[in-house]
């Protein structure tokens, strides 16, 4: 299963490395979102500093949505999904591979957005001990939930509208928990942050479990 996962993740990341869609389109989009927030809230520096965690995660969420859509659009076009199914790969392995590929892209995106937040909004990323595990857990949750719904919506004519409708409410807990954890990390009272991190871990575990168990059903005939 893990070998299959590595195969799929490798394939996706190689595809990405060659096509550079994430680099050339998703990353600029994410930075653009950050800039738009700054334009909208500029007159009051205080507001921008207070809402930085929320803006950061909203930006991650929206650009993450694009990354997920992209990851599964790749499958549905050239009949790759059929090839995957026929190849006899373990569905759980395919799922893990997809999650890993999406998570790697998301992490790169988060680092980029983190730099943007530090430079543009003046955030202070000194409490790394909480920020890094929060990012990891939230990313795993986003990638796992995104992969479950991504394969579900892949190949449907209405996927552009259906995927956000299904995915955003499901990801709301991640947004809330990650934002709160960041708030307490940036605000200098990390005590509460750890509880939110716990919630993120639960979420990631829940969706990884769900994906492992149901991916076979979802993959059955595309």
């Amino acid at each position: 299963m893990l070998r299959d996962a590595a195969l799929v993740a490798g394939k996706d990341l190689r595809l990405e490395a060659r096509s550079r869609v994430a680099l050339n389109q998703v990353a600029p989009f994410a930075l653009l979102v950050l800039m738009l927030f700054a334009f909208a809230l500029d007159p009051d520096r205080g507001i921008l500093a207070r809402v930085t965690p929320g803006l950061y995660w909203v930006a991650v969420l929206f650009s993450g949505l694009l990354a997920v859509q992209r990851a599964f659009a790749v499958e549905s076009t050239d009949g790759v999904a059929d090839a995957l199914r026929l190849s006899g790969l373990d569905p759980a392995g395919v799922f893990l591979g997809k999650v890993a590929a999406v998570a790697v892209q998301l992490l790169a995106l988060e680092v980029l957005l983190g730099l943007g937040v530090v430079v543009l909004y003046g955030a202070d990323p000194s409490s790394v001990a909480l920020l890094v595990p929060t990012c990891l857990a939230a990313t795993l949750g986003l990638a796992a939930a995104g992969s479950v719904y991504g394969i579900l919506a892949a190949g449907l004519r209405v996927r552009e509208t259906l995927l956000p409708l299904l995915l955003l409410p499901v990801l709301a807990p991640v947004l809330i928990a990650a934002t709160s954890a960041f708030e307490s990390a940036l605000g200098g009272f990390p005590g509460e942050g750890w509880r939110w991190l716990g919630l993120l871990v639960v979420f990631a575990a829940l969706y990884t479990g769900l994906g492992l168990a149901t991916f076979g059903v979802l993959l059955e005939d595309g």
Partner: peptide, 28 residues
């Protein structure tokens, strides 16, 4: 979430596939 579930049930798909997708969304 329920509205999303009902949206999945209205997808113009072949029934067996639609039911399968809806069941997975319904679990949540």
């Amino acid at each position: 979430l329920v509205l999303g579930y009902l949206a999945v049930r209205r997808l113009p798909l072949e029934r067996e596939r639609r039911s399968r997708l809806a069941a997975v969304v319904g679990l949540l």
